[in-house]
Design a protein around this nucleic acid. Structure first.
Lengths: 195, 195
DNA sequence: GTCTATAGAAAGATAGAC
DNA sequence: GTCTATCTTTCTATAGAC
């Protein structure tokens, strides 16, 4: 057997890494399979040994981006529960994130064309979104009751993801900063217990 | 002159109407010039007598959608200032809006591929966003000081637009409703003066 | 598993007749 | 201004050699 299982796995990972980077930067339709494979130092034909279709790799990229997100993985382990959220919100709503200098959140950067893509892709996006809301919810103060926790975690999710999506579409740095800072202030306020 | 100026204007309006509907429903890349012109009961070749390029018509569609939005135009004129926002937020975060049974907000439905499109398109999106924030800002309570007004208007904008964008990408009606209702509750709360 | 070659379809934009 | 016809490019996906 000329190619080991590890080799195939490595190729798959390379393609996925390229997929996350390129799809996040240029969107679903502006990346071709050829672009993808060239970035991964392979050729077009090999693609279909790893993925069924372009939508398939997009779906897998959403999952990979979520799993490998620095935004979550880089949260210091020794933070108190109430510090986790402010750390997370602060890095999520940073210029570094919007300009993709750190690994991008798929919910903000891969929302492009999810709503018009195959049901399977929407399902994947939905799962990742549920995980996102859960992360927020788990780190809200203990004083929050069930309803508060539910309401606030959903709203914070929409607020921060929405800010990054909109921020990317703006061509004015000042307005973008205003948006990020304002959202950060309100998101922080919502994590307090004065709801 | 076989074609009057009014005739050209009418054709342009028809194309724009089709552009808003199709781009909002299917996204920039999933609509061809041919689709557009067929929907407007014209043929491909005539397109370039009205618009420079596909990006051009997309830009004009963003403007047209903003100007013709029922979400703004249908706000009853006799509402008190503090009722305007709750009316607007409520219709914006409705299922009818997400499922496009009423005229869709370009900031939510045309955000697709704006961030990867030409600078002119981003500039147009930015202008419309500024108008959106201004609308919120103008209808916040008089008690708000300048900083509060600025912060809250930006955050509410990101919250409601983000909710609709994400809501569209979800394939689960229950989660979508949870998101819309939660965002509505928090947006309403932010319009109060207890900031 | 990866390569080259290519089939087959679609799209943006232009040319020229009316 | 609108039409038909077409140029040119690009893309997904497949076929077959190694």
């Amino acid at each position: 057997m000329p190619y080991s299982k590890e080799h195939k796995q490595q190729s798959r990972e390379k393609i996925l890494k390229s997929a996350v980077a390129l799809f996040c930067r240029k969107g679903f339709n502006n990346v071709s399979i050829d672009d993808l494979m060239k970035d991964a130092k392979l050729t077009r034909g090999a693609f279909y040994a790893h993925f069924e279709s372009k939508s398939d790799v997009y779906m897998q990229a959403i999952i990979a981006a979520a799993r490998n997100s620095d935004l979550v993985n880089d949260i210091p382990k020794d933070l108190h529960k109430d510090e986790v959220l402010s750390f997370f919100i602060s890095s999520y709503l940073s210029n570094r994130h919007v300009s993709q200098e750190c690994s991008p959140c798929p919910l903000a950067f891969l929302s492009t064309d999810v709503s018009t893509n195959e049901p399977k892709v929407k399902k994947t996006y939905t799962k990742v979104f549920e995980g996102f809301v859960g992360l927020i919810s788990d780190n809200l103060p203990n004083e929050f009751d069930t309803v508060q926790r539910h309401t606030v975690s959903h709203a914070i999710s929409a607020l921060v993801i929405g800010s990054v999506i909109i921020g990317r579409a703006l061509n004015d740095d000042v307005i973008q900063d205003n948006l990020l800072e304002s959202s950060k202030a309100i998101a922080m306020q919502l994590t307090g217990s004065e709801v």
